[in-house]
């Protein structure tokens, strides 16, 4: 259950539209089902009242949408940033991906999002509505009537190990700002590290072989903002699933993890949007963990303009040979 309500955000957004501060609002739009929200651009108070929703299913991170939206027209865009979204926001500013002047950002607190897949697993088919009620969730189903489950049982994995309740970028803040959390988000990575090479390979083969190459992970990723993506290049021989053989299982996601290394804020959108439920965020987290261990703690997007360790050099940097030794020691 979120502390800020849809009504409050709609009121705020309508005011800003009315007084001319902003001309568009990025927000979550009602879908066919109450848990099925879509990112959308609202241009009037009426639209907002009709369709805007902020709930336990407002997971979508709007930072990346600002790249296109700020270029479309003059006037400012209003964006609501949950704490984890605000890190992506800063990272994109660090990379000069949109004009800060054209954005009005409102930081909002987040109590963690629910994972629809977990609810489906818990309740079964035929869900017609989901209603949050404090720490309980009431699921209305077609066949079995109402079912009640604990909110904590169906929380999204990325929210269970939430790294920060602190909005790091905003023009205005609703409610109190939270703190950075010393979370246990690397526990899963450690489990993978403890596997043998063969076990780990089998684990990832099993996960990645389900990839249907829909590119949703890339499209949603706030670190994937190239003008032209190499994976769309028809000359590459890997631009779609049909022509490539084992590319998705062996290379695609690993190349992408390398590509965003040092720039990934660990927002977890890749795993959220994956229709196949592949835990893609674990690849990125492994890189984050390694970077922290090799170069000292670093959180991408914590501040604007920070130099990621991978594009910075200091005399204290680990020597490559020591990094290799450490890797060997970890595997031993």
């Amino acid at each position: 259950m979120q502390k800020v309500t849809s009504e409050l955000l709609v009121k705020k957004a309508s005011e800003l539209l009315e007084n001319g501060t902003v001309t568009r609002v990025l927000g979550w739009k009602k879908g066919e089902f109450s848990y099925d929200l879509t990112p959308a651009v609202f241009e009037s108070g009426e639209e907002l009242i009709k369709d805007f929703v902020f709930s336990d299913f407002s997971g979508a991170n709007f930072s990346k949408y600002l790249i296109k939206e700020t270029k479309k027209a003059d006037g400012k865009v209003l964006v609501f940033l949950k704490p984890c979204d605000s890190y992506s926001f800063n990272q994109l500013l660090t990379e000069h991906r949109f004009d800060r002047e054209k954005v009005y950002a409102i930081g909002i607190p987040c109590e963690g999002m629910a994972d629809v897949d977990k609810i489906k697993k818990n309740v079964g088919d035929g869900i017609i509505d989901i209603i949050s009620d404090g720490d309980r969730i009431v699921v209305k189903t077609l066949y079995d009537g109402d079912k009640e489950i604990a909110a904590d049982d169906v929380k999204a994995e990325r929210c269970i190990v939430c790294k920060s309740k602190k909005c790091v970028a905003y023009d205005e803040l609703l409610g109190d700002n939270g703190e950075v959390i010393d979370s246990e988000r690397f526990d899963e990575v450690e489990k993978l590290e403890k596997m043998t090479d063969d076990e780990r390979f089998a684990f990832w083969q099993n996960e990645l072989s389900r990839c249907i190459r829909c590119n949703a992970c890339r499209d949603v990723c706030p670190a994937c903002t190239c003008e032209k993506c190499v994976f769309d290049n028809p000359k590459s021989g890997v631009e779609n699933k049909a022509i490539s053989d084992s590319f998705e299982e062996k290379m695609f996601h690993i190349i992408r993890a390398f590509h965003v290394a040092g720039r990934c804020t660990d927002c977890g959108e890749c795993s959220r949007v994956c229709p196949q439920g592949i835990p893609l965020h674990l690849l990125n987290r492994k890189f984050i963990k390694d970077i922290n261990e090799f170069y000292g703690e670093y959180q991408a997007g914590a501040e604007i303009g920070s130099r990621a360790p991978l594009v910075n050099y200091t005399l204290d940097d680990i020597e490559p040979v020591d990094a290799v030794k450490k890797g060997e020691a970890d595997n031993a």
């Binding site: 660090t94 990379e95 000069h96 991906r97 903002t225 003008e227 032209k228 130099r307 594009v311 910075n312």
Partner: peptide, 13 residues
């Protein structure tokens, strides 16, 4: 220039 997205990584290194 058609590929460059102006991220500044190159300038930094």
């Amino acid at each position: 220039e058609l590929m460059c997205n102006g991220c500044s990584s190159c300038e930094r290194v």
